[in-house]
């Protein structure tokens, strides 16, 4: 449990938010040409990093907007928050 600084609403309790998993997984540009292995990689395989992880969050019980977060999963410390479409900060 921690506080999240929503880029649209400001600082709110984490329970207002929904975690959306790993960020920057691009949808395949040519889905029809993907092999089964590539589909598995896109759909299921995750880094599941212990340490600094890039992820998506949704302010589900607030503005309902999606945004990105850089968070250290070993201590839940939030390093950066940036809007969808923005470039991730260098780490």
């Amino acid at each position: 449990m921690f506080l999240i600084n929503c880029p649209y609403c400001g600082e709110r309790d984490q329970q207002e938010f929904k975690a959306g998993g790993e960020a920057h997984i691009e949808r395949p540009k040519q889905p029809t040409e993907l092999s089964d292995d590539e589909w598995a990689e896109y759909l299921f395989m995750r880094k599941n990093t212990k340490g600094v992880q890039f992820e998506r969050w949704n302010h589900a019980h607030g503005c309902r907007k999606w945004f990105n977060m850089v968070r250290d999963t070993s201590n839940d410390e939030i390093k950066a928050i940036y809007k969808m479409g923005e470039k991730p900060p260098a780490q």
């Binding site: 449990m1 975690a19 992880q53 992820e55 839940d76």
Partner: peptide, 14 residues
């Protein structure tokens, strides 16, 4: 479970 990835062995109060 909490719905976010974490290795903290804590978890949320709610």
């Amino acid at each position: 479970t909490d719905d976010y990835v974490s290795y903290t062995q804590k978890g949320s109060h709610q």
